[in-house]
């Protein structure tokens, strides 16, 4: 069994419907720890040692946040800047995180069609996530395909429930080590994995 750490960042969690539903679906799962950054560090004063310890204690790291300006909210960036320290996460001697798995779980306002070469955003979500992908690789970790929830402003209750179930299922698969890294190779989004396993 693998241990999962969700690094969650949402500056207006009290207003969120999507992410509230998603987090609620997984927060009480066995083997899953939710680390709510904005709740823990309202003054942006991140306890670097504690965060690094949490990373070491877990095998799968989920970076869960809404997509703001095609990126993560500010505190998550601060977390990356400070916690993924040189000599700890990267650099010639920085091998502490080697081999861990990282998955982005993001929600976007735009629909999936918008995030395409022909759509108004011109790039796919995966393309926008390039900095995260590279950061993970630089830290000698494995970057999984992202889990994306599109159209957060217009999503129906029914669709949202489906998403929440899917999220929970993916985390279960990850936790129970039911995923073969091979099958992820040509998988664009983690969402598609469910269909395969079903």
């Amino acid at each position: 069994m693998k241990k999962i750490l969700i690094i969650f960042a949402h500056p207006a969690f009290q207003k969120s419907v999507i992410n509230k539903t998603l987090i609620d679906a997984v927060k009480n799962m066995e083997g899953v720890t939710v680390n709510d950054l904005y709740e823990t560090y309202p003054d942006f004063f991140i306890d670097i040692e504690k965060e690094q310890r949490l990373l070491l204690e877990n095998d799968v790291i989920i970076w869960h946040h809404p997509f703001y300006w095609y990126n993560a909210p500010a505190l998550f960036k601060e977390w990356m800047d400070l916690v993924l320290q040189h000599g700890f996460a990267y650099g010639t001697t920085g091998r502490a995180l080697e081999g861990k798995w990282v998955m982005s779980a993001i929600s976007t306002g735009g629909q999936q069609e918008v995030y395409s070469k022909t759509g108004s955003n011109r790039y796919t979500v995966n393309e926008f996530l390039a900095p995260f992908n590279r950061s993970v690789t630089l830290c000698r970790m494995v970057y999984l395909p992202p889990f994306v929830t599109y159209g957060s402003h217009t999503i129906s209750a029914e669709k949202l429930t489906q998403q929440a179930d899917a999220y929970r299922e993916i985390l279960t698969l990850l936790r129970d080590d039911k995923i073969n890294p091979q099958e992820l190779n040509d998988l664009e989004y983690m969402n598609n994995l469910i269909a395969k396993h079903a």
Binding site: D81, L82, Q85, H86, G91, T92
Partner: peptide, 14 residues
């Protein structure tokens, strides 16, 4: 120094 992210001295030395 740990506040300095990519401007830490160890990185520069390396």
């Amino acid at each position: 120094d740990s506040d300095c992210a990519w401007d830490v001295d160890t990185l520069k030395d390396e």
